[in-house]
Amino acid sequence: MIEFIGSLAGILTTVSFFPQVYKTIKSSSAGDFSTAWIIMMTTGVFFWMVYGYYINSTPVFLANIVTFLCMAVLSWIKFSGRHCDKLPNKHNDGAGDK
């Protein structure tokens, strides 16, 4: 039963990242994420992943591998310079450029 609870917790907390990652990919911007949060969260998830491996807990290990991958995507978008404010405005008709 305890493995089921751990698995359910891991699935729910990991899957909760998917909508945010999707939104970030779609907008090509992670500008609203603080750099400190990205670094601390990614580092923390990495250590949870290592911990799960060493205590031989599949739910902890797998959930944190997936979360780490989500954080890698968010980090890449955040630090690669792909921000919406640098992209051309699709709705700009040229008016007001003068």
Rank of each mutant, 00 (worst) to 15 (best):
A72I: 05
L8Q: 04
T35A: 14
F17Q: 07
T43P: 05
H91R: 10
A9I: 07
L87Q: 15
S28C: 15
N64W: 02
G94C: 02
V45F: 03
T58Y: 10
S16P: 08
G94R: 03
N64M: 07
T42Q: 09
F4N: 00
A30S: 14
G31P: 12
I55G: 01
G6N: 04
K90L: 15
F79I: 11
K78E: 12
T13W: 10
T43V: 10
F61D: 01
S80T: 13
N64H: 02
Q20D: 00
F79Y: 15
F79Q: 12
I5W: 01
W76R: 13
L8A: 06
T35V: 13
A30I: 10
R82K: 15
M71F: 09
V21T: 07
G52V: 02
G31F: 11
C84A: 15
Y53H: 08
I11N: 08
S16A: 12
G31R: 14
C70W: 03
S27D: 10
G44F: 09
F17I: 01
R82P: 12
K86L: 12
M71K: 04
I38Q: 06
F47E: 02
H91D: 12
I11G: 06
L87D: 13
V15A: 04
G94H: 05
Q20C: 00
S34Y: 14
S7T: 13
F33Y: 15
L12P: 06
S29A: 10
V15Q: 06
T35H: 11
M40P: 05
I25T: 07
I5R: 00
C70V: 06
C84W: 15
L62H: 09
I2V: 04
A95W: 09
Y51G: 04
S80Y: 13
T14D: 01
P59E: 00
I39T: 01
M40H: 08
Q20M: 09
I55L: 00
A72F: 08
E3P: 01
L74N: 10
C84I: 15
K98E: 02
I38K: 09
M49Q: 04
F68D: 07
G96Y: 06
